[in-house]
Computed example of a mutant assay.
Amino acid sequence: MLKPLSILLLCFALSACSININKPRAKPVPPECVSSGIYLEKFELANGATLVVSEGKLEPRSLGSVTVKLFRDLAVGDFVAAVSFPRDGTILKAVLIENGSDKQKLSVTTVTAGSGNYQDSQLICVAGDNITLC
């Protein structure tokens, strides 16, 4: 005959091992919906246009490209032009260093991956509907 303490331990052990078999399994999240920590920033220009600076979405964080897009009106998607350039590392910062009504200049600084932390800057010039590396 089982002693009361043995019965109590047996009941506890059985209840601790139970699972909810009706619980639905979580669906895997598609990779494109997971935040990868890419750089994405917008800059409002004095002439009303907008610059959007981003790293490539499906690229490795340590190497890839930088794209700067020019929109007349970002709210409605009035895209004008873009410029892309290669990057070695990640975008550290982007700064609008000139913001006149007829001419703008943006500086994009990248920093290399690894222990060196070497920085490199690229200037982007905007004049009217033209966007170029300068």
Rank of each mutant, 00 (worst) to 15 (best):
K3T: 13
S6P: 00
I7E: 07
L9G: 00
L9C: 07
L10S: 10
F12K: 10
S15T: 14
S15G: 08
I19W: 06
N20A: 03
I21L: 01
N22H: 13
N22W: 11
K23E: 13
R25L: 12
K27L: 12
K27M: 09
K27V: 03
K27D: 13
P28I: 07
V29S: 02
P31S: 08
P31D: 09
E32W: 12
S35F: 14
S35T: 13
S35N: 15
S36C: 09
S36T: 14
S36R: 13
Y39Q: 04
L40G: 01
E41M: 06
E41W: 05
K42Y: 04
L45H: 06
A46S: 12
A46Q: 12
A46H: 07
A49I: 04
T50K: 02
V53Y: 12
E55V: 00
L58V: 12
L58P: 01
S62P: 02
G64Q: 04
T67P: 05
L74V: 15
A75V: 10
V76H: 08
G77F: 13
F79C: 08
V83D: 00
S84M: 09
G89M: 14
L92C: 11
K93C: 02
V95N: 00
I97E: 05
I97Q: 04
N99M: 08
S101R: 08
S101E: 11
K103S: 14
K105Q: 15
K105N: 01
L106Y: 09
S107F: 05
V111W: 01
A113R: 05
A113S: 15
A113T: 04
Q119V: 07
Q122N: 04
V126C: 05
G128R: 11
D129H: 01
D129F: 03
I131S: 01
I131E: 00
T132N: 00
L133N: 11
